[in-house]
């Protein structure tokens, strides 16, 4: 049962990811990306990571992609032809990479590594609590660094956007 779901989600993720770059209409690309986000969330649900699934949809589908669509619609690009002559190169690279991954997979037929903190433990305490604990204890330093970087990016964006306003007032 789990395998059926995994292969369904994986197939749709792969298919829609290709569509995102292959479709000519940017709005359709954004929609393909939306479908992909949902299936990634579905993959998280099959792994019993409901919190991640919900956050995936809230952040990526709910906020970031809406901003993309916003920009695409403001510029009102009906179709974008500039990047589509890269298709042969991209195809060649893609096929090469796929063969490499396949070769690696065939060569290293080792048993899958034992799962760390087991899924059952997460199901008992609730994976939201587990993620919170891990973020604020084991991974506290990387977490804080990530927040600092995001803060810097935010301030940078504001300064860039306000540049001409500051110059005109001086």
């Amino acid at each position: 049962m789990n395998h059926i779901f995994f292969f369904y989600f994986a197939a749709v993720i792969a298919g829609t990811s290709v569509l995102v770059v292959a479709l000519r209409n940017p709005v359709y690309s954004a929609l393909a990306l939306l479908i992909m986000f949902f299936h990634v969330a579905g993959l998280y649900v099959t792994l019993h990571a409901e919190f991640l699934a919900a956050v995936q949809i809230v952040v990526y589908a709910g906020a970031i992609l809406v901003l993309y669509l916003f920009v695409v619609m403001l510029l009102s690009i009906r179709s974008e032809e500039r990047y589509h002559n890269q298709l042969p190169v991209a195809g060649l690279l893609g096929v090469t990479l796929c063969t490499e991954v396949l070769l690696l997979l065939i060569q290293s037929r080792t048993a899958p590594s034992a799962p760390g903190r087991s899924v059952e433990a997460a199901a008992e305490t609730g994976n939201t609590e587990m993620i919170g604990e891990a973020l604020y204890s084991t991974y506290l330093f990387p977490f804080e660094v990530a927040s600092l970087i995001l803060l810097v990016a935010m301030i940078g964006a504001i300064i860039l956007a306000k540049k001409d306003i500051i110059e005109t007032t001086e």
Binding site: F51, A54, V55, I57, V58, A61, G62, A63, V66
Partner: peptide, 9 residues
């Protein structure tokens, strides 16, 4: 969170 997610959709 589920409600927030779908409200944003």
């Amino acid at each position: 969170l589920y409600i927030l997610a779908f409200a944003s959709i």
